[in-house]
Simulated scan of single mutants.
Amino acid sequence: MSKFFYGIEDLFVNYLFAPYDFFRFLQSWWASNTMNWIFMIIGFVAFAYWMGQLKIFNDNGEEDKSISSHSYI
Rank of each mutant, 00 (worst) to 15 (best):
D10F: 14
D10Y: 09
G61C: 13
W50E: 15
S32Q: 08
E9Y: 14
G43P: 02
I42W: 03
L26Q: 09
I73S: 14
S28F: 00
S66Q: 11
M1R: 09
D64V: 10
S2I: 09
K65Y: 10
L16T: 04
K3M: 09
D10H: 09
M51K: 06
G43D: 02
F12Y: 12
V13P: 01
Y49K: 11
F39A: 02
A48P: 01
L54I: 10
M51Y: 00
W50F: 13
L26T: 09
L11E: 10
W37G: 11
Q53D: 11
R24L: 13
I41V: 07
G43M: 01
H70T: 15
I42L: 14
R24N: 04
A18R: 02
G52L: 04
I56A: 12
D10M: 03
V13S: 12
P19H: 06
F39Y: 08
D64S: 05
G52Y: 10
N60M: 14
A46N: 09
L54G: 08
F5Y: 15
M40S: 07
G7H: 03
S68A: 12
D64A: 03
I38E: 05
P19L: 00
K55D: 04
D21M: 05
N60C: 14
L16P: 00
F25N: 13
L11N: 09
T34C: 04
V13K: 04
N14E: 09
Q53V: 14
F39Q: 12
S2L: 07
W29Q: 14
F12I: 05
G7E: 00
W50M: 06
N33V: 01
L11P: 01
F25I: 06
L16H: 01
G61T: 02
F44W: 14
I41C: 01
Q53L: 15
S68C: 11
P19K: 05
G61Q: 11
M35L: 08
F17S: 05
N58L: 14
A48V: 13
I73G: 09
S2G: 11
G61N: 07
F39M: 08
M51L: 11
Q53N: 14
E9I: 02
G61H: 10
I42D: 08
F5E: 10
G61L: 06
F25H: 13
M35Y: 07
Y15Q: 07
D64N: 13
F23P: 02
T34D: 03
F39K: 01
F25K: 06
V45F: 03
F57M: 10
S71V: 07
I42R: 00
I38Q: 03
F57N: 07
I67Q: 13
K55Y: 15
W37D: 07
F17I: 01
D59G: 02
D59C: 03
S69A: 15
S66V: 06
F47V: 04
G43K: 02
L11W: 04
Y72V: 14
I56T: 11
F22K: 06
K65F: 08
F47L: 11
I73V: 10
G7P: 03
W37R: 08
G43L: 00
I42F: 03
M40E: 04
I41S: 03
D21T: 06
N60G: 09
I41M: 07
E9N: 05
Y49C: 08
Q53S: 07
V45S: 01
S68E: 10
L16A: 13
F4T: 00
M51W: 01
F12D: 00
Y6L: 15
Y49W: 12
D10R: 04
Y49T: 06
I8T: 04
Q53P: 02
S66E: 05
A18K: 01
